[in-house]
Design a protein around this nucleic acid. Sequence first.
DNA 1: CATATAGGGGATAAATTTATCCCTACACCA
DNA 2: TGGTGTAGGGATAAATTTATCCCCTATATG
Lengths: 140, 140
Amino acid sequence: MYERKTPLTIDCGLHLTKEVLNGKWKPALLNAISMDVKRPSEMLRLFPGATRRVLNVQLKELEGHGIVEKKTYPQLPPKVEYSLTEIGWSLMPIIDAMNQWGDANRSFLETVITQSPKIGETSKSVCQMYRRIVVVPKIG
Amino acid sequence: MYERKTPLTIDCGLHLTKEVLNGKWKPALLNAISMDVKRPSEMLRLFPGATRRVLNVQLKELEGHGIVEKKTYPQLPPKVEYSLTEIGWSLMPIIDAMNQWGDANRSFLETVITQSPKIGETSKSVCQMYRRIVVVPKIG
DNA sequence: CATATAGGGGATAAATTTATCCCTACACCA
DNA sequence: TGGTGTAGGGATAAATTTATCCCCTATATG
């Protein structure tokens, strides 16, 4: 496995949070899981741009960081379900805010991002979902 | 300049926002600017772990994305001041939330992040600041 | 003249993250 | 028997991001 060579910067809350959300599909995965897309195969269908491998890797990191939980059902064919932990749920306001901000400013952002010098191409594919309001489970 | 070879994923709001905040120091820079740390040299002093080069690059990207504005005073020695644009200010609730979430969960996160298999070392150095409440300037 | 301040940026190396490819296991269906 | 669905992960290549180094402008100071 890959081992980090540079000290990870975790000086302020921003960097800590960034580290947790750091991964191309992590916010999208959390959003999906929060809306009951629990199984890997569903997620894979939901994000046509992602490969199975990447989702596995990022889910594993989220699990390692205590943000999601994985339940493996001892069946065949195998069945796995992910769910948010309490701390994972507490991230959702941020995920929601990011989602809303991006959507609210989509036309502007698409313009500036596309005109940005280093951009070649962009790919779009809707991943909109609506999470029903859920009472965050209280542990304790 | 570097040119992207893979299509950038901007399907949902999450990915758009992620793209804007994508950069090791961008959230921290926005936070700093929002608290009146306007000049490059101040920022450099504020983030001991960052080099001038990286900050320049990331500030330039933020500028290109319309999140910050740069004012160059035609003086010698040169003087430059950055400020948030309206859309930049509208990001601050997200930045604040990320900062608060990270700080609120610091002890837990430090543990899981440090125990995460690929981590070697971490570096800390406070970057706490308190932004006074500011009325977001209304353009129009 | 050397050094410091203040700001910008090219070139290149190193680190990190994503993408590709391929293989495992088992059950069910035609 | 051969294909499909479900899930996991090693190995390696490619892409992207950060880090290092070095150079430039111009003034003021020791």
